[in-house]
Amino acid sequence: MLVSLYRYNPEQDNAPYMQDIELDIPAGKDLMVLDVLALLKEKDPTLAYRRSCREGVCGSDGMNMNGKNGLGCITPISEVVKKDKLVIRPLPGLPVIRDLVVDMGIFYEQYERITPYLVNDTPAPEIERLQSPEDREKLDGLYECILCACCSTACPSFWWNPEKFVGPAGLLQAYRFLADSRDTAQEERLSDLDDPFSVFRCRGIMNCVAVCPKGLNPTKAIGHIRDLLLQRAT
C-alpha cells in the first residue's frame, strides 16, 4: 500500500509537502489508520500526530483520510483506501503546528463561547435534580460529542468565518444545554447566539453529519436552535 502523508516541521521545512511511503500491511489484518501511523512512526520517530484512547471516544486523532475527515483509530483501511493508496492530511482549515497536529485554538474558543456548562440558579436540592426519562432522552445524540473537530473542519461556513460562526460542534453543544430540562438560562443562551453569524451562517451543507464519527447530527441541532431563535423573534 502507498501511504501519502502530509509532512511539515516548522523548524526545517519552508512549506508542507507530501511524503510517499510504500508500506507492507501484515496479511489478513484490517488495520485501523492509527495503526498504520504507529507502524510509520516506528520507522520514522519524527512523525507527529495526536492519539490517546485508540477506541473512538477521546477525539484526539481527527484527521483527513483520502479526502474525508474521521478518527484514525476507528477507521479501518479497508473503508478508506482506494487503489491501494491512502492519503493522510491534517484536519482542513486549521493552522498546522506540525505534520498532522493542528492548532485547535479557534475550535475550542467557539466551544467556550456557547457557555458550555449547565446553568441553574435555583438552590440545589439535597439529592439530584429530578429529570424524567423523556426529558433525558432529549440529550441523546447531543452529549456524546467528543470534540474531535471532524465536523467543524469539514464545514465551508466554518472555514470562511471561524471567528464569527460557532460551527457545528459548538452549536451541537449549545443545543445540548438549550435542550436540558435542568437548565434555566435558555433566554441568555439564545441572546448570545442571536446575530447574523453565530448560527445563521450554517447553509445546511451537512458535511458535519457526513463525517461525524459518533453518528451525531449537528445540522438537526442547528435547525432546532434556528427554530427557537425565530420563535423568540416573533
Binding site: 449547565l118 440545589a124 439535597e126 439530584e128 429530578l130 429529570q131 424524567s132 433525558r136 436540558d180 435542568r182
Partner: peptide
C-alpha cells in the same frame, strides 16, 4: 455524585426521575 449531577452530568434516569 449529587454535586456531579448538579454540575450537569447527563445521568440516565428512572421513571421517578432519579439517577
Amino acid at each position: 455524585v449529587f454535586e456531579l449531577e448538579h454540575m450537569g452530568l447527563p445521568f440516565s434516569r428512572t421513571e421517578q426521575g432519579r439517577i
